[in-house]
Design a binder for these strands. Structure first.
Lengths: 128, 128
DNA sequence: GATATCGCTTTCCCGGAGGTAACTAATATC
DNA sequence: GATATTAGTTACCTCCGGGAAAGCGATATC
């Protein structure tokens, strides 16, 4: 005695589960800076002030907070070298490598999105 | 007369550009609900109250605001049918399909991340 | 036509994210 | 002891996400 309703239930549950996975990801990767920082540090390890210059728009306070978050969640490691004025190097852990595909797809999408927006402006219509 | 510095400049510029693409993507997809909503509506078009029930934790006000944002950015369409108490159906546009890969990778990552966290708790150590 | 209900929408409010600018601690140099 | 460098921290402020609850337009009921 299958009904349409019964057939929809598994699809619904599956959808709710998938959304939960996406929300789990967003929970640790929320905000404006997590993805940009992980991407940048995956290119090469950097010092605090180097990140400040490379990641445009970020401020010392926000950077310090984001780096703390990322370290707590196992994405980066903070290495202190007792040199003359102290050198602190931030580098990504292997766990950040698991984000490779996400970072790639996000970057690709952002690139085509920028192009689409530029075209919309040229054509003087926002969408459709 | 190449120096190490000169060789690093293109890589730096390339990195800054890629980060810009990622930031462009995050600009329209920021917050807790954009990805979950696009994913859910890509599964099937839904009415306002159906979304409220399906996307756990979202409130009417926040949902209305997010739906407005998503419509303005061309991700979804709001269709009104003049039935007895009025039916409003929200459905994704073809532009949302361009996010397919991003949504897939984000969901995959979130799933393995949840598993990793559960293991960390079992083993009583947070990372490393 | 007064009242109730459904399907959103708006108002009010709080807390936290994130920006600005100035300050600090440790060492080295002058 | 004044100044510079590195790696932040602190105080202050604004804006936005998001929760609670009321508002509102259209129909259904009496």
């Amino acid at each position: 005695m299958k009904s349409i309703v019964n057939e929809q239930v598994p699809a619904k549950q599956e959808c709710i589960l998938k959304v939960k996975h996406i929300s789990d990801a967003l929970y640790v990767l929320n905000g404006k800076w997590k993805f940009p920082l992980i991407f940048t540090l995956r290119e090469s390890p950097l010092r605090f002030n180097e990140i400040l210059q490379l990641v445009e728009g970020i401020t010392p306070k926000v950077l310090a907070k984001e780096l703390r978050d990322l370290e707590m969640n196992g994405f980066i490691e903070r290495k202190v070298y007792p040199t003359m004025p102290v050198t602190v190097i931030y580098e990504t852990t292997p766990y950040s490598d698991t984000l490779k595909n996400v970072l790639y797809e996000l970057g690709q999408w952002g690139e085509q999105h920028r192009e689409k927006i530029r075209e919309s402006i040229r054509n003087n219509k926002m969408d459709k």
